[in-house]
């Protein structure tokens, strides 16, 4: 039985959508001839042609603008950032043009912006970042963070069909690391709705909310803790905007202790926002402090020793959960 990787699922989703809708097209650096830096779009140029698979000059702001204009004329562009770190160059176009068009003058911008995010592959400060909060903080953009093979496929299909700009943050460490049998993928929903979290493990003692590659850190920690009699419920947010607040609050009301985990840095991170939501709406349901496990407020360092210290590890989660459980 063949196995499908996260990368292949993402690739298959874009391929299927381009077959389904001739208005879907790809733009980015080296997405055509070279097939993408991670080979996500290998074979697309030959199959779909140069009008639908466009190798752009290195110009993130420019080609994001091009995608917006093409979307105004009925196309549905997928913009690739070779590494998501380079999205910083397109910040003005995304936050001021794409995000505000519908609100200002009713012109929707159905584009998908995608690229490899995250660390753990020793790629240093400019090829490892998690830029989600810049965009979570910008009204008008949706942000999704698939962690599983099925979600890589399902959220990409949903993003392409969405009428608004969607930032699709794939995690480069998961590309070839995560795989499932084709039959298992076939049994999953083809399209995953944006804005719905997924409970990946049930547990009665602590609810752990996370997203992206940290899902696997959370699940490994849950396994270890289970051996100690501490049962974690693990929520994979899947979408940061819109946020499935109901899923989080429902778990807090049932379980009463919360641990928030992300690979992104601490200050102004998603965990802070979720803490505030819980504090405002489920304060009386808490039996302990809301605990955050996050990267520290530094750039992503290069050296293996430093990067491992930067990215939350299983033992960090286990330690925090033990303390919270004992509270």
């Amino acid at each position: 039985m063949s196995e499908i990787t996260y990368l292949e699922a993402l690739r298959q989703a874009m391929w299927d959508e381009m077959e389904r809708d001739e208005n879907v097209l790809l733009l980015g650096e080296d997405v055509g001839l070279y097939g993408g830096a991670f080979k996500v779009t290998a074979g697309f140029l030959d199959h779909f042609g140069a009008n639908r698979v466009i190798d752009t000059p290195i110009s993130e702001e420019g080609y994001t603008g091009v995608a917006i204009g093409a979307a105004f004329n009925g196309l549905r562009p997928i913009v690739e950032f070779q590494f998501i770190d380079f999205i910083a160059n397109a910040f003005n176009m995304i936050t001021n043009f794409a995000a505000k068009s519908r609100y200002r003058w009713g012109a929707g911008v159905p584009i998908v912006m995608r690229g490899p995010s995250g660390g753990g592959v020793r790629a240093g400060p400019f090829h490892s970042q998690n830029p989600e909060m810049h965009f979570v903080h910008t009204p008008g953009i949706k942000v999704v963070t698939p962690a599983t093979v099925a979600d890589a496929r399902g959220l990409m299909k949903a993003a392409i069909r969405d009428e608004d700009p969607v930032l699709y943050l794939e995690h480069k460490k998961l590309y070839r690391h995560i795989k499932v049998p084709q039959s298992e993928l076939d049994a999953q929903d083809d399209i995953v709705p944006i804005g719905k979290a997924s409970i990946k493990r049930r547990g009665a003692n602590i609810v752990l909310v996370t997203y992206g590659a940290m899902l696997y850190t959370a699940l490994d920690a849950a396994e270890t803790l289970s051996g100690e009699g501490i049962e974690l419920e693990v929520i994979d947010l899947r979408s940061l905007v819109p946020l499935d607040e109901e899923c989080i609050l429902d778990a807090v009301r049932r379980i009463n202790k919360v641990l928030l985990l992300h690979e992104d840095t601490r200050t102004g991170g998603m965990a802070g926002e979720i803490s505030a939501i819980i504090a405002e709406q489920a304060f009386d349901d808490l039996d302990g402090p809301i605990v955050r496990v996050t990267a520290p407020d530094t750039p992503v360092p290069y050296a293996a020793s430093l990067e491992d210290a930067f990215i939350p590890q299983v033992e960090d989660v286990v330690r925090a959960a033990r303390t919270l459980h004992a509270y």
Partner: peptide, 24 residues
């Protein structure tokens, strides 16, 4: 097409509209 408060962001957006005209 509405511009933003910045002087030239619409240049690439209009290039994108023109690109769409060409490919369509």
């Amino acid at each position: 097409v509405a511009t933003t408060g910045h002087v030239a962001t619409h240049v690439s957006v209009m290039a994108g509209m023109a690109f769409a005209y060409r490919v369509r």
